[in-house]
Nucleic acid binder design. Sequence first.
DNA 1: GCGACATAAATGTCAGACAATCAAATGTCA
DNA 2: TGACATTTGATTGTCTGACATTTATGTCGC
Lengths: 237, 237
Amino acid sequence: MAARPPLSTAIADRIAARIADGDLMAGDRLPSETDLAEQFECSRATVREALKRLAARNLIRTARGASGGAFVADLTYAAALDAHVSTSTLLLSMNAVDFQTAAEARFALERACADLAVANHQQADLSRLMAAIDTLDGPIDDAAFCAADVAFHRALVDAGRNPVLSYQLAGAVEAMQPLMNMLTYADRDRATILTLYRRIADALRDRDAVAIRAILSELEASMLMLFQTGQSRRNAR
Amino acid sequence: MAARPPLSTAIADRIAARIADGDLMAGDRLPSETDLAEQFECSRATVREALKRLAARNLIRTARGASGGAFVADLTYAAALDAHVSTSTLLLSMNAVDFQTAAEARFALERACADLAVANHQQADLSRLMAAIDTLDGPIDDAAFCAADVAFHRALVDAGRNPVLSYQLAGAVEAMQPLMNMLTYADRDRATILTLYRRIADALRDRDAVAIRAILSELEASMLMLFQTGQSRRNAR
DNA sequence: GCGACATAAATGTCAGACAATCAAATGTCA
DNA sequence: TGACATTTGATTGTCTGACATTTATGTCGC
């Protein structure tokens, strides 16, 4: 026999279903814990455990005090992105995804938004790209280089001006940062990458999607080589 | 002054940090609730609320009985995908993403994996595609049609043979199913879609990535028109 | 009118108890 | 000895009742 699942998870699922169905809308207030306990015929402690599960999933937020209580959360892109990134990061680290697979996925996704970026980008997007390039060109350590690198790629993704695409892609790109952080960049490598980035910015300005895709593929090859030489050096040590 | 955040969230965060840092590895067992309560100098109820939060995030799983307890979860692609899909679905519904934006993102992502699918697909992938097409060709209702539709797209994505890409894309595709479910398919529409799907399968077999991308763009245009005619019919009613 | 204070409602935390579950140790019998 | 039943200990799940903390709101005195 399957072990009976805990009551608290069942309650959490029932409330979550009501939220997903639109039965409870964002901003709505749930009944108080005492009322819910009565409604579900269980103790307040059990209801609380259910509510904590929902809070952890960003489905509700709670406030203390009079006119406090549990409210259906107004899920923002930022909050969802946080959750997506943390889950993805953990997934990649736990399943020991190798660098090549991650890079392959990442650049495939980025090439996907080249068309949209070319079609929809605005001046602000180009400015963000250039700002990231300027940062990368300065005297910064590897961690800062990676962070600016992520900023560059996010700017490129956001240039597509499609929030759904940005959300999905930004999650993927940021989740892979720990893997990218394993790289160390020699001065010559940085110069190579920067050249490619400048060419991407130029191609975007010229609205040349084919070129962007090609440069991204070049970039992927460079990163892969960078990783492999770094690894062989580590092994030889 | 900023209100002091609840103690239980602080404890949850501390444990989560230890997991993320690799301090606690997958499969490791956490101390018992009683021990943790002693360690964090709080009551067992507070520890429990913290653990429930972690469980909701798929970071730990708990088991009752002797040699039970809380274990660091071995996060699987399936579990992460579940979380990704449910968050994304909620995000799209709450933020009232319009059909066009969602479709644009979805097809851009799918076009991204055309190259990989062409390069890496195996016979099993083609079989799955054909099986989905056969299902779609049968006498099924709109909901089943949508489900089979998702199966087709997942098969296409999985043909890239890159688990990271599949995870990201499958999450995006499935999250958009509720939006796609708003469509109703007349017989003629189904025939149009099926024709395009068959062409995609053929192009994959012929390893023609350019063709796949083109057909996907055709498909996007068809879906968009389908949606718009449906909407104008609804408005005229 | 306005600030200080009491009130009420809600979540957050605590303590202790009991129930349910499960694995391993232990006992029993052929 | 070996297979099967039983006990036992550890652990999570749930309940109960209480108190602490936070916050909006009303009330009193001025």
